[in-house]
Nucleic acid binder design. Structure first.
Lengths: 327, 327
DNA sequence: ATTTCTTAGGTAAACGTTTACTCTCATATT
DNA sequence: AATATGAGAGTAAACGTTTACCTAAGAAAT
């Protein structure tokens, strides 16, 4: 690899001059020299060594994004939103899959610090701990899954209570009298909030909260599938509010197996609006989260923190019901 | 941030000694000194500066992965496979979405070179060019979409001709007499090969190749949807071989709208076996590619090249028909 | 008694940039 | 005539590591 010194030698100038030309700090460089240097840079195919630059400048123009699993439709959309926004601002992103493991999450936080990333976007793993996080002094933005932390971090979330509250109310407005809830266990704030919204809606409508109609395991298709069997063993429902769309997929599958028609016998509403929802059968009615924007805003806020523009650190994005055919 | 020099000062040794201890090159370090240094490292929460290390060592333990779009179920699985494999080998991955744009792809190749990644995994954008690529002298592995290149690169692909050949034969074995093909335009080798396999199967079975039964646009749900209308305007088919699963999703949706039943009236087979296929209605019969493994092997081969173990540079992975309900 | 080997650890260059200073003219100002 | 200003470019330190080479001292071998 050819270096700046080599270019300098070929152009008969000092490396300082080459550096200035390349970086546009050419106020005191003659047009002639500038041209000559640029020509040689072009001809030799010189590519600046970003590592050396980062060492000197103490910034890498790189951010890390830690999320449970990019194969998950939700997180891949967050990742895309984040990467797109980063690219627009001249940053590059390192992708880290935590597989919902605290250990892996901690390991990555460490690696990212070693790699001197300028900031980190984190969708925390499910179990709530913050040991690793508190002692990391790189700018950080939490997205989707919020967390109680001492240190100041950005947060991009939606109002989850409101989301399931609206969803449940929607089912009620459609005439459901007995509504079940299938979601993840209350291991984190997000899961707690979604359960809360469901209960709140029932309570406000004078409907009984029946533990037998609540099935909590994890945010997966399998949970939805199991949930159906659980709910229908315990009795009967005519509507199911799902903790997310993956669960809704499993629920619909389970109901099909049981020969129960959606939405005629049981109405289903999901949460997230993942991109595949509209191709399901029936197309999924759901609570839309602006997933892509979640990633985008996370990067915007993170870069504001990095570049020390001060800006609102917390953004609560809006949810909205997307009516399709499942409810 | 505390540096190695600071640690050295606190431990009353030279920074060389600290470096040796940290990196386990401690053959000539007394146990006493080793302990003392390690304790101070721990106590002070020292994190090595990977950038400085990379500059000196001329390697970053980072690889770049360029793919069209992580939001696409296929590529997100490739990405996951790649990231998992990289993590196991102590590498970190920079994620780049090309959005199928040559310009963006070229830009990223450049950025990755500046960031001094040790290697690049590339799923080329659709249009075939290699200008940028030929002049990049970083180890590279092509995955999924193969490309003619002068320079030596790794390649991880499946036999696409065989894939659609098997798929079409499967439809024929199920009694289809008139088989359509909906796929992407022949902009790259992959698309060409898939079309070839379809034609080959028809030819070998003495069936006519009818251009009206072939609709080529892009590898998207929309193309599948449009394809149905195109095919049924031109006449009638009783089986459709799809260039990938996303197209199959669109095809099924289009057929539903037309009130045509799958698989009774028209049988559908996809390609890829994306994770959502089994939850479709009807569950999608498809040609399975080992998508996750594609990413995994890409990283394995790439790292072998980087670390100069020599190894087979080209891997052709197997496909297999996954029978579900759509055909 | 001299040489050689081994253990323990230090010195300082090098990796490829950026940038605060410095230097030299030439021109403008007093 | 002396001084200030500005254009144009160079010098060298610094960023935080790693590592080839050096030193010193004690043990072992000759």
């Amino acid at each position: 690899m050819i270096t700046i010194k080599e270019i300098a030698r070929l152009a008969n100038v000092s490396s300082a001059t080459v550096s200035k030309v390349i970086n546009g700090k050419d106020r005191y460089i003659s047009e002639e020299t500038r041209k000559r240097v640029l020509e040689i840079v072009e001809r030799e195919g010189y590519i600046p060594n970003g590592i050396a630059k980062s060492l000197k400048m103490k910034r890498t123009k790189t951010i890390g994004i830690i999320l449970p699993d990019v194969m998950n439709l939700f997180f891949s959309e967050v990742a895309k939103g984040a990467e797109d926004a980063a690219e627009r601002k001249g940053y590059t992103v390192i992708l880290c899959n935590s597989d919902n493991s605290k250990a892996k999450e901690g390991k990555y936080i460490n690696i990212l610090q070693e790699k001197m990333v300028d900031g980190i976007i984190l969708t925390a793993s499910e179990a709530e701990t913050s040991k690793y996080l508190e002692r990391c002094n790189i700018p950080m933005v939490l997205v989707d899954r919020d967390l109680e932390l001492e240190k100041p971090v950005g947060r991009i979330v939606v109002d989850n209570v409101e989301g399931t509250y609206k969803a449940t109310n929607y089912l009620i407005s459609k005439g459901c009298k007995s509504i079940g809830f299938v979601s993840s266990q209350e291991v984190n704030k997000l899961a707690k909030e979604r359960l809360l919204g469901y209960k709140k809606a029932l309570r406000e409508n004078g409907m009984e909260i029946d533990p037998n109609k609540i099935f909590l395991k994890s945010f997966t298709v399998e949970t939805g599938y199991e949930g159906v069997y659980h709910l229908f063993n315990q009795g009967h429902v005519d509507g199911i509010c799902c903790g997310n769309d993956l669960i809704a997929i499993g629920v619909i599958q389970g109901l099909k197996e049981k020969g129960i028609s959606v939405p005629e016998e049981v109405k289903i509403i999901g949460f997230d609006n993942i991109c595949i929802g509209k191709y399901l059968d029936p197309p999924l009615t759901t609570v839309r989260q602006p997933i892509y924007k979640l990633g985008e805003e996370a990067v915007n806020v993170l870069i504001s923190i990095i570049e020390k523009k001060d800006i609102e650190m917390v953004k609560v994005l809006d949810t909205e019901i997307v009516v399709r055919a499942s409810a």
